[in-house]
């Protein structure tokens, strides 16, 4: 995808023309920044990292291969930049906390993607009302009965049942849903 940047511009960039660099910058900078911000979840740091990408692009301009997709080239640079940032940020945190248990909807695909399925369940739980996810965790992870949960949280057993079936429904939907 280089609708606005032509091969001539890229060749100009390789030759070190400031004008060509400006054209490439204006076309791609926001895209690079938004891509990085989406991955690292920090606008400020994304601005710095996107600037790094373009500084590096200028420094290494002679290695640009105009025969290949420039968009794909920038994509790889942006991804690597974001990943390096994340590696440094996460280096102090212990690798992989234990995941929650899976909902029993395992199809062969869910087994192959066990780790991914667990992560999806956790993501779904983290966006549920706190009470609902708590009830789900108490039931599925701690193995408490509905009656025990009701007593522990001081709510009716019916509320526990309703919340549990809503939680399970949401999780099933999330795991099984298709993209049209």
């Amino acid at each position: 995808m280089h609708s606005n940047v032509t091969i001539e511009t890229l060749e100009g960039l390789k030759r070190g023309e400031h004008r060509a660099f400006e054209a490439v910058f204006l076309c791609y900078f926001d895209k690079v920044k938004r891509f990085i911000a989406g991955l690292i979840r920090s606008e400020d740091d994304a601005e710095d990292l996107a600037q790094d990408v373009f500084a590096k692009l200028w420094t290494n301009r002679e290695t640009i291969d105009t025969g290949f997709s420039f968009g794909a080239f920038l994509f790889t640079m942006s991804r690597n930049t974001a990943f390096n940032y994340l590696k440094h940020k996460l280096v102090h945190v212990n690798y992989m906390n234990e995941y929650t248990q899976r909902e029993e909807t395992d199809t062969p695909e869910e087994l192959v993607f066990a780790k991914e399925t667990e992560l999806l369940i956790e993501m779904t739980l983290s966006r549920m009302p706190e009470k609902r996810s708590e009830i789900y965790r108490l039931s599925r992870l701690k193995g408490l009965s509905n009656g025990e949960i009701a007593a522990l949280l001081n709510i009716s057993q019916k509320t526990v049942e309703n919340n549990l079936s809503m939680a399970i429904g949401e999780i099933r939907k999330e795991i099984n849903n298709n993209l049209n």
Binding site: F25, L26, Y28, F29, D30, R34, E47, Q51, G71, S78
Partner: peptide, 16 residues
């Protein structure tokens, strides 16, 4: 990546 538009804003110029 492909879904993100290729556009510039006034802020892009100050980054440049």
């Amino acid at each position: 990546w492909n879904s993100l538009p290729e556009t510039a804003s006034p802020a892009t110029h100050s980054s440049l």
